[in-house]
Design a protein around this nucleic acid. Structure first.
Lengths: 348, 348
DNA sequence: TTGTACGCGTTATCAT
DNA sequence: ATGATAACGCGTACAA
């Protein structure tokens, strides 16, 4: 079915080498031979065989995208599928194929080294997830597979480049906006990872340090369950609703999926958004736009984050750049997409 | 970094062939040699090289999932990412890798043959999208790449196996439920493809033929834009709201994404669901569950659809089954997930 | 058990 | 200048 370089060579009456050279415009082949060979190759629908190519170039033309197991929803998680969208666009645009899979990246004890990586069928990896253990990353590195991470899980800082949104910046902007509306008690539902905890602490500290928000009481709402879990809304409802009215945050910051689910819980418990509580999502997927009320959100260009991760990896693979933590990026622009989930707080 | 079979052979002091045989338990190799060789292989972290393997087995161990370009949202489209979830689980479970990409499958004039497929870097393809042209599928077939389609776009019926939900069955169940609640004017917003049109016509005919729903006026609401588009809600609003009150459907059936967006449009236009209009989604993603009100939906196991498509393809690749349209599946169980978007219609 | 050919494309060396 | 020959990379399989 597929024409090999051999068959073309026989048909034209030259050697394999001649065909190979003709196809890539090597000067050793005369003008007319080249056009003749190319014509035949075209007719036979010649494509170089990927396996043969890989065998001597040592490059597969594929990169792998591994999404950590602990991510709620897996590929249906809109936050990550939006990033995937960017990665895929990047790969496609640069002529690379994209191989996707899910593995446990968050726990070295249960980590299984991906067989396909072991067989060297990808040139590099993009690792994504809420938590990625350093030990896991080191397994890949020791094996010699270049890696780039998406998300700035603290465990791997300083090991490989990571591409992430500026979470702290976004949170401060959200708090600032909240303060401007008159909110004082602000709850931040952080993500269930060490990094999530760290982010919460940083936010509290920096909000205190900022004159515009220093009077706010920013509190961390402890998470349970998986990263970005819908079902975390139950727990959030309990945490928030369980507080006496004059202690409850009047505004809650969290991720889109959790807040979307929380919105429903609120209604069924007889509360209204934004009358009883305001919400701000950190990360703006289409869920925020189509929620009702629309969720005010810190909007990052998630596709761009995916595309950037792809570019860093491929630039490295093509020898353009070394792959060091110094290539990390978290300087993406963000803005507040104001919708209808925030209002002026009720007086106690 | 990676140990080749050569290196192991040298280290042990035997031939390449001996190592190859030992590793796969060939009886020609003595017990002790085998264990010895395996031990060394283990120590050196031996993995067979995928390219070399492919070169003589003619099998890559990868399958490709191509999502048509014309799909609104791309990988973020929850309907398809849920299916992807199933495909990925299937591949992972059966030891295959999954390569994903987007190409235009709906129009042969703008179709570009995927380079990676041309290079034979996948063993087979799963094609997904609202509309897949027969001419496009035939290109793959002529090239010799086994294909399975997801969704029963009429253009390719009889060419390759397709795996799809039973749309008509689900629609009838929805109409039946609607009739039971007392709805008479029922609108079905079909998808913007020839197959969508056909589905609408079938639904209307079969609803008429069923005694329980024969009194209903099922009407087709013409679509615009992309398949599953959020922004189709504008047009749906115009079509519905533009009708005189006593002609308006009291219940609308459509896809989850369009209805989710429509829900917002309704509210901002001063309507209420389900008081003013009831909604039923055909296809139940998490969007339906977290919409407010929750969307009553015909629930298909989308992951199972993805898994099944993967199984059919891989069964074929492993020689277990021929790949004919006769392998098509659309007999998946479905049920109505009753939520809060349907009520008793108001009297005119 | 070993030697060797094979599959496929690249590239360095050698011959006109 | 042009093109052929051969080796290489890696694992499989068959003849020796």
């Amino acid at each position: 079915m597929t024409a090999s370089i051999q068959q073309i060579a026989r048909k034209v009456g030259v050697s394999k080498a001649a065909v190979s050279m003709a196809l890539k415009g090597h000067p050793n082949i005369s003008e007319k031979r080249r056009t003749q060979i190319r014509k035949i190759a075209e007719e036979l629908g010649y494509h170089p065989n990927a396996a043969a190519l890989t065998l001597n170039t040592k490059r597969t033309g594929y990169i792998g995208f591994i999404l950590s197991d602990d991510m709620a929803g897996g590929w249906t998680n809109v936050y990550f599928s939006t990033i995937l969208q960017g990665v895929e666009a990047c790969c496609h645009g640069r002529g690379y194929g994209l191989h996707i899979s899910r593995y446990n990246l968050s726990n070295i004890d249960t980590f299984v080294f991906p067989e396909k990586v072991g067989q060297r069928s990808v040139d590099g990896l993009i690792l994504a997830g809420g938590r990625i253990e350093a030990a896991v990353v080191n397994r890949f590195r020791e094996f010699g597979t270049p890696c780039v991470a998406i998300g700035d899980t603290m465990e791997i800082a300083g090991i490989i480049p990571s591409v992430a949104q500026d979470v702290e910046g976004g949170l401060l902007k959200a708090v600032d906006y909240a303060a401007g509306l008159g909110h004082v008690r602000i709850g931040f539902r952080y993500e269930p990872t060490p990094r999530g905890r760290e982010v919460a602490e940083t936010l509290i500290r920096r909000a205190k340090a900022n004159p515009a928000t220093a009077h706010c009481q920013v509190s961390a709402i402890d998470p349970e369950g998986l990263w970005g879990d819908y079902y975390a809304a139950d727990q959030l409802m309990k945490a928030w609703g369980g507080l006496p009215k004059d202690k409850r945050p009047t505004l809650i910051i969290g991720n889109d999926q959790t807040l979307l689910a929380f919105l429903k819980k609120l209604r069924s418990a007889g509360f209204n958004c934004p009358q009883d509580v305001s919400l701000i999502s950190v990360g703006d997927t289409f869920l925020c736009e189509f929620a009702d009320p629309g969720l005010t959100a810190v909007k990052y260009d998630l596709e761009m984050i995916g595309r950037t991760a792809g570019d860093i990896l491929i630039d490295h693979l093509e020898g353009k750049k070394p792959l060091s933590p110094a290539s990390s990026r978290k300087d993406f622009a963000f803005e507040l997409a104001v919708r209808d989930s925030c209002g002026v707080p009720k007086r106690d």
